[in-house]
Nucleic acid binder design. Structure first.
Lengths: 130, 130
DNA sequence: TTGCTAATGATATGGTATTCGCATTAGTAA
DNA sequence: TTACTAATGCGAATACCATATCATTAGCAA
């Protein structure tokens, strides 16, 4: 049977609490505060478990390692800060993108990523890791 | 000095002629028709050379290997077919995406990818590799 | 042609994120 | 508590694309 471990809970809690998609090593760093000696392998194992059960999903940006966010989040897009490299959620979606495809093409889905400077980095503030 | 080889020319010609971004192995497959015995290492070498001199640029889709297109192409986006996995150019851009970012965020650039079925695959035609 | 050496072909190697193997730890039911 | 075994920690192993190595080929100037 499945056991409720401190490590599993820590991984989940960190993703829930982040309010932005996290890299595996970010999960490790944050979860370590609650579960010391947490290993990266365990982070990956729990990420996989949570993905398989549908609790979280991967957010993949071009050329970057997957980040993870709550699967319960509704359709949205992302913003990446070029300075601190963190990824933030965008609540809005431009919509009506199907018209961009040529005739005969069937659009099923889309992905939009904005790049720039986040609030902290625009203001020359040093962002906190959480 | 730099020498004009059949292989280098073949790699460049294939990218010019494709009218869509190509993976390294697609370049290899297509260029082999002109330059038999062409090796993947040479494809990568020439891709790098062409990139360094600014002739081509990489197009990276989430979780996928880089594709290459002519750098002279103006701002545009891409469509990927989920069946044949080929990537196509979209001529249009929705524009005015800056408004999607929260206050304090500075948008410098954006990336948009549509996913679905290309013309060939919508019509159950088998796409030609070129 | 000849000679120089840039470029190639074939394969080995590197870099790195993720997964595996296994001894150990620690949930959980009784 | 105790026993059972799922889950962990840690290091090794894997997988993958891209680059490096190096003997060989082939541009190109003379």
């Amino acid at each position: 049977m499945e056991r409720k471990t401190r490590q599993h809970q820590a991984v989940y809690d960190v993703i829930v609490g982040a309010h932005r998609p996290l890299l595996a090593h970010e999960v490790l760093a944050l979860a370590t505060e609650v579960a010391p000696r947490l290993s990266l392998a365990t982070v990956y194992r729990n990420i996989k478990t949570l993905q398989d059960e549908g609790s979280i999903r991967a957010v993949v940006l071009p050329g970057q390692n997957p980040r993870y966010e709550l699967a319960s989040r509704s359709h949205h897009h992302h913003f990446q800060c070029r300075q601190c490299e963190r990824v933030f959620d965008l609540e809005a979606c431009p919509g009506n993108l199907d018209r961009l495809a040529p005739a005969g093409f069937m659009v099923e889905d889309h992905e939009l990523i904005l790049y720039g400077r986040c609030d902290d980095c625009s203001a020359d503030r040093v962002p906190s890791p959480a």
